[in-house]
Design a protein around this nucleic acid. Sequence first.
DNA 1: ACCCTATGTAAAACATACTTTACACTTCGT
DNA 2: ACGAAGTGTAAAGTATGTTTTACATAGGGT
Lengths: 67, 67
Amino acid sequence: MKNHLKTLRAEMGLSQQALASRADVSRQTIIAIEKGKYDPSLPLAFKLASIFGRPIEEIFSPEDADT
Amino acid sequence: MKNHLKTLRAEMGLSQQALASRADVSRQTIIAIEKGKYDPSLPLAFKLASIFGRPIEEIFSPEDADT
DNA sequence: ACCCTATGTAAAACATACTTTACACTTCGT
DNA sequence: ACGAAGTGTAAAGTATGTTTTACATAGGGT
């Protein structure tokens, strides 16, 4: 699963901590997702989508996985 | 998190087992999601979206949660 | 009555997502 | 030179998602 988190975050001028706070998760979670360590849960994906004002599909893409 | 899984599945005339097979998960997983026991992972949400030919946002909605 | 399909429930085990803490490194401002 | 802000890594612990197995019930077909 790929994502544009880092780019979008940069575009909005948010620090990892700032984004984490807005999304109600820890900074570690943001780092892990940006680094591709794991995928966010669906609820978190929705939150991030709403923060960036874009559909989930524009932020994340299956890519790697089988679908 | 609400979802229209059961409805969409019915519309396509798929059994829980058939949908599970297509999505590469167990029938239990489909049941649990339909019954709202828990939310799917993001990768699974993408698979289901692709099976039903609709964006994730049309199948799932945050509703309950805080976002 | 019997079998088969579909749906539901439950519990144990395992995998993934998330938190908290603590530490390292870089860059920028003073 | 110092401190602060931003980013990165790591490990232990908790929470959530998923699998497997096993069993219960209802409806349809023969």
